[in-house]
Every structure is written in structure tokens, then in C-alpha cells.
């Protein structure tokens, strides 16, 4: 009897583990505009794609720009533009001077993903970008903005 229960539970456990694993791998990947191979994004500071989402066309994605301008915090909602490739998107610069980071939030089924992407005059700063398995918290965003070097990223 116990053996039968174990035999029954094992595949169930395996299915659950797979589901959990899939949910945990939902994430963002960022790249320069050439990665999208879409001329409409040539002026975008960066493009991004989702990975680990079973149905990328159903992922819910939002983006904001958060920054520090003249010692004051600023925030603006950005339009997320889809490319011709499923799961590939771009955002366009709407901010001016100051220290800015783009905050990405994504949901795919029950999974979440987030990213904080500092931007400079030459586009995104890959080395300073951070990725999360949750939507970035205010504390994480604050920390990222405070980590900007003196004079901003070059």
C-alpha cells in the first residue's frame, strides 16, 4: 500500500516541481536595439524580451521611468512597444536630464518578473542592471538610483 502511494505521489511531485520551476524562470532579458532587428526601435535606449513564459503573447508588461532630477524624484509611465517578434519589446526615451532608470514589471500566469535598468547618454547600462523574480520594490528602486556614479553614467 505504501509502495503504491509512493508510486502515485512521485509523478505528481514531479509535475508540481516542473510547474514551480517554469514559474521561477520567467524573466526579462535586455539588449541593444539591434537585438530586435526592427528598424522602428533604432532610437530606443534598449529592447527587451521575456523568457520562461509559456505564452509570451499573454504576458502583461509595464514600464516606468524613475529618476532624480535636481534632487527631486520624478516618475513617468512609458509605452511598451511590441516588436514583430513575440515576446520582444522596446521602450522609447521620454526623459531629459537627470539620473534615470527604467523599471520593468511583468506577469505571466502566476509568475512575476522585474528589472531595474539604469540609462545614460549611450543607452542602457548593462553592468548596473538588476533582475528580479518579483516586481521591483520602492526600496530596490531607491537603492538603484542612489547607486548612480557622480555625474551619472557616461
Amino acid at each position: 500500500m505504501k509502495t503504491a502511494k509512493c508510486l502515485l505521489l512521485a509523478p505528481v511531485a514531479l509535475i508540481c516541481a516542473s510547474a514551480v520551476a517554469s514559474a521561477q524562470t520567467f524573466t526579462f532579458e535586455i539588449g541593444s536595439p539591434v537585438a530586435a532587428q526592427d528598424f522602428r526601435f533604432k532610437a530606443a535606449p534598449f529592447v527587451f524580451r521575456t523568457t520562461g513564459c509559456g505564452e509570451p503573447q499573454k504576458a502583461e508588461i509595464s514600464a516606468t521611468a524613475q529618476g532624480i532630477v535636481d534632487s527631486g524624484r520624478r516618475s513617468m509611465t512609458l509605452k511598451v512597444a511590441p516588436s514583430s517578434k513575440p515576446g520582444v519589446y522596446g521602450v522609447f526615451q521620454q526623459w531629459d536630464a537627470g539620473r534615470w532608470a527604467v523599471i520593468l514589471k511583468g506577469s505571466c500566469g502566476g509568475a512575476q518578473a522585474g528589472a531595474i535598468i539604469p540609462v545614460g547618454p549611450k543607452g542602457f547600462v548593462r553592468e548596473a542592471s538588476k533582475f528580479f523574480a518579483h516586481h521591483p520594490t520602492e526600496g530596490e528602486i531607491d537603492a538603484a538610483l542612489k547607486a548612480f556614479p557622480e555625474g551619472g553614467y557616461k
Binding site: S32, P33, V34, F39, K42, A43, K122, G123
Partner: peptide, 19 residues
Amino acid sequence: TKGWVAFQWKAFESLVPAG
């Protein structure tokens, strides 16, 4: 400096992105 350019000569093509 922005976007990307392809430079072609006969059988050779180089894709040159920004930077």
C-alpha cells in the same frame, strides 16, 4: 552611432550595430 548598418561587398557582409 544609432541603429545598425550592413556593409556589403560581393560575398561579404558585415553587420555593424551602434557603438
